[in-house]
Design a protein around this nucleic acid. Structure first.
Length: 378
RNA sequence: GGUGGGGUGGCCGAGUGGCUAAUGGCAGCAGACUGUAAAUCUGCCGAGCAACGCUCUACGUAGGUUCGAAUCCUACCCCCACCA
């Protein structure tokens, strides 16, 4: 085994169970990666994140470039040492901010000029610059700097973003190769774009693979406003065509049901801010539906958020106490719900993995879908 | 006892003749959130109804002036400050 190898020992239909070897450790897949944009999974202590079962977390190029600056991170020994997170990390490239900060940026072929949301200063991110920043941050996996377009984009616009992402991918690859010079400290993954259009997705896949080989492949531009059936269709189109022996990373996804459906379509890795954001906003996932912890029905509820959950929050605290924390603006409440939600998604990966290994994924999925309630509980 | 200030919807607090069922804030209720500009944002928040509109009750109490009053006048009740 060498760094960045992916051991795919088990498959069950399209679903897969593998082990991804990275410089900072192994990642058993399928796996959910909590998002730690600024070098912290918002609100949580690294030990808590690890105890919740997270094997790898994300950081963000754009945000860490603005604050504290990659020079600071590098001076402090890189993102791992800086944050004290000892396990694998992945950094996103800032490509998502091309989408999410649409009103604060201008795209050109050279790159993207952002007006910093922090202080209004002009910051230019190009494929090369994104690679340089990520190399300085030093995560195990760096992502290509791509051009993400909204889910409802017309064919022409989706095509523009996809073709530009391909051109930028070639530049990213060149720059990353120069920076790493054969080092095995960091690998670099491409991102397939193409919006909701099959022809564009296939063109993106073809163009991406032509620039390979890659140690992993990401699917981007989903969960950005398109419907779930459309997302499923895109995954079904891509799944069988992606390199079988390499991990597939579905970026920005998702909600619990999205993980299950993604795994069923051959996805190995996920990340999503919903676990921590919804947690901070008082919403917790359970198999019986989402719990809005602020609801009056929880005022005197002695039960845990989710009696079937093994997280530290559910192990110890009543809904009534959690509600009290939220109503009182005690930050512990935000932390405890974030922790539960992270564990909820991590556990889906663990359960799906076990099911794949034991060859009962189809049954597990059906059972899970049958039991899971998407709406509010009660 | 005197002088001055004040009593507004659960709380705080604007408003000083019509555009006021009454600005705001808090509390309360509900919803949204998918590679984090988010401990954020949105909606509701006197009652009732055949409810995108209508009716009723409301700004300490009781009267009055006026086409029209939370807003002006009178009396009373209560609170605060200062003086006796």
């Amino acid at each position: 085994m060498t760094a960045f190898d992916f051991d795919l020992a088990h498959t069950d239909g399209e679903a897969r169970a593998g082990i991804l070897h990275l410089p900072h450790g192994d990642v058993a897949t399928p796996a959910f990666m909590p998002v730690g944009t600024l070098g912290a999974v918002r609100g949580l202590h690294p030990d808590e994140v690890a105890r919740a079962g997270a094997q790898i977390i994300l950081g963000n190029t754009y945000h860490l470039h603005l604050r504290p600056g990659e020079d600071v991170v590098r001076a402090l020994g890189g993102l791992h040492r800086f944050t004290t997170w000892p396990k694998p990390m992945l950094t996103d490239s800032g490509g998502f901010q091309v989408f999410s900060l649409e009103t604060l940026r201008t795209i050109s072929e050279e790159g993207v000029e952002f007006t910093s949301h922090v202080d209004g200063s002009r910051r230019f991110l190009s494929p090369e610059k994104a690679m340089e920043i990520q190399w300085a941050l030093g995560a195990d996996i760096a992502m290509a700097f791509d051009h993400v377009v909204p889910g409802g984009s017309a064919h022409a616009h989706a095509e523009e973003g996809m073709e530009r992402s391909l051109r930028w991918l070639a530049r990213c690859r060149t720059r990353h190769a120069e920076l790493s010079e054969g080092s095995i400290a960091q690998t670099f993954w491409p991102i397939i774009q193409g919006g909701t259009f099959p022809d564009l997705r296939l063109r993106s896949l073809e163009g991406t693979l032509a620039l390979g080989p890659w140690t992993g492949t990401a699917i981007g531009g989903l969960s950005v406003g398109e419907s779930k059936p459309v997302m499923h269709r895109v995954l079904e189109e891509l799944g069988p065509r992606l390199p079988r022996d390499r991990p597939r990373y579905l970026m920005g996804v998702g909600f619990p049901e999205d993980l299950v459906e993604g795994i069923a379509r051959g996805v190995d890795l996920f990340d999503c801010v919903a676990a921590t954001r919804n947690g901070r906003h008082g919403s917790a996932w359970t198999m019986n539906g989402r719990v809005n912890i602020r609801k009056a029905t929880n005022r005197t509820a002695e039960e845990p958020l989710d009696s079937a959950c093994d997280c530290e929050t559910c192990h110890r605290f009543s809904r009534a106490y959690l509600r009290h924390l939220f109503v009182s603006d005690e930050i512990l409440g935000l932390r405890l719900l974030s922790l539960h939600n992270v564990r909820f998604l991590v556990r889906i990966g663990e359960q799906a993995r076990a099911a794949v290994i034991e060859g009962r994924f189809t049954n597990w999925r059906q059972d899970w879908i049958g039991r899971y309630t998407q709406g509010d509980d009660r």
